[in-house]
Design a protein around this nucleic acid. Structure first.
Length: 282
DNA sequence: ACTGTCTGTGCTT
DNA sequence: AAGCACAGACAGT
């Protein structure tokens, strides 16, 4: 079933309007103002948020505390874990994880025994997004239609981990993902992903594709000095655990067709269209 | 099912 | 006391 993001003004749209307003304002915005912005009654705003398990005020406070935290320490422990270092860092992190845990990345990914992980969901322009993060960075980001189903998925995938829902701690991640979902640029999220060394190289190469641009599978293969591994590049895209954060939707076929997307070809198309129109407006 | 109105509670000033 | 956020109940479409 395709997401019905075009079917009139939904609660999801209103929530997005309100979230953006509070992100711009840097804190809570009066419900009456939010109601004006979303063109509905204050009670409706409250109900839309209620459906997500957070109140408008609580979201606004989360935005504010997060901004305060970011400004207090320019680089967070998560942020300097991987972001500023680029590919070498991703690879060395992958190597380090492999040594420290003494298990293969796939085993590590299949259950993440005992690892404390936070998760949260958010509505977005392309559907519900679920995000999972360790203290090092984003472990998973999935796009779907049914929130409960996404939550079940990540609970199965990280079955042995110590999972805890915490939208407050995740608010900066959620903001970044929602921003990416509407085709705008967002700060690079620190990642805590596990894959083979080859996958790590592909994912890092993909992260360098600017918003509003695309690359072909062949170009990515060339970029990582594996010009014949085009199919393996495509497979690595398909295995991308962190939608949007690793923008594999920007990788297409040489003939310009979109090929596939793990979370739906329509989502891929919508993302590329949104990013290109954002690009043109600048 | 979704929405608006009314209403009560609790918190802050 | 007054204003606000929040949410339950009820009715209209």
């Amino acid at each position: 079933m395709a997401p019905d993001y075009r079917a009139g003004v939904s609660g999801r749209d209103r929530v997005l309007v309100c979230c953006r307003a509070m992100e711009v304002a840097g804190g809570p915005v009066a419900i009456s103002e939010l109601a004006d912005l979303a063109d509905c009654t204050p009670r409706q705003i409250q109900r839309d948020f209620q459906a997500l398990g957070i109140s408008p005020g609580a979201y606004g406070r989360a935005v504010r505390t997060d901004l305060a935290r970011v400004s207090l320490r320019r680089t967070t422990t998560i942020a300097d874990a991987l972001t500023d270092a680029g590919y070498g860092s991703v690879r060395s992190f992958y190597d380090e994880v492999g040594r420290r845990l003494g298990m293969t990345p796939s085993e590590y990914a299949a259950g993440a025994p005992g690892l404390p992980l936070l998760w949260a969901t958010t509505p977005s322009a392309i559907g519900v997004i679920v995000a999972v993060a360790s203290d090092r960075g984003l472990c998973a980001a999935r796009i779907g239609v049914d929130r409960a189903r996404l939550v079940d998925e990540i609970k199965r995938e990280f079955s042995a981990a110590d999972l805890r829902e915490d939208e407050f701690a995740m608010v900066d991640v959620l903001i970044a993902l929602r921003t990416l979902a509407v085709g705008h640029q967002a700060p690079q999220l620190p990642l805590d992903v596990n894959g083979t060394a080859f996958q790590a190289r592909v994912w890092q190469a993909i992260r360098t594709i600017p918003s509003g641009q695309t690359r072909t599978y062949t170009q990515i293969a060339d970029q990582i000095n594996r010009p014949t591994s085009i199919r393996a590049v495509a497979a690595a895209c398909a295995g991308n655990p962190v939608a949007l954060a690793v923008p594999c939707h920007r990788v297409i076929r040489t003939d310009g067709s979109l090929a596939g997307y793990a979370w739906g070809i329509e989502v891929k198309e919508q993302l590329l269209t949104a990013e290109q129109s954002t690009r043109l407006q600048e």
